[in-house]
Amino acid sequence: MDNQDKAGRTRSRKTVRAIALVVGLFVVGLSILLATRKPVSMQTVASPLINKAAPPIAGTSLDGKKVSLASYSGRFVLVNFFASWCTPCQDEEKALVQFSNSSQDVSILGVVFDDVNSSAISFLRRYGANYPALSDPNGQIALSYGVAQPPQTYLISPNGVILTEIVGPVNLTALNQLISIAKSSGF
């Protein structure tokens, strides 16, 4: 083995080691990244609409009256997206009805999500709901609120700003507390 070849070998070894080092660093980075991630099921993302003006809602309610969100200006509004086929909607409906009966300064506005009107009407009747509910043909209202799956509920302040988004079923105490806090925050 002549000298030049020996030199070549050393250089080649250095090359291999340098590349191995770079790849190693990459793998370390990847491992750290992966190790510090949390499972998807543990993550919640806030809706981008919070603290923004609520998208307009206008249409015909299930009992044939004209309803619009704008006409509720000056009151808290709870916009609730629901469907008769969704199990968590059935879970929360009782609480919603109780809340609507007990609170004077909060109105509830239901929006039907991917359901037949007749089913939605009988669903609301079954729980004795007396708040207006809109049908949402083509799901355009749901789309403007960023609804993925019912039930999803939005609290809108008297000046028409979305205060919070509740994904999944609501409960009475949480609703009451939310309203108190919202009021105390000056809305």
Binding site: G8, R9, T10, S12, R13, K14, T15, V16, R17, A20, L21
Partner: peptide, 9 residues
């Protein structure tokens, strides 16, 4: 690989 770098050439 780094250890055997030269032999791999």
């Amino acid at each position: 690989i780094a250890w055997r770098g030269d032999g791999l050439r």
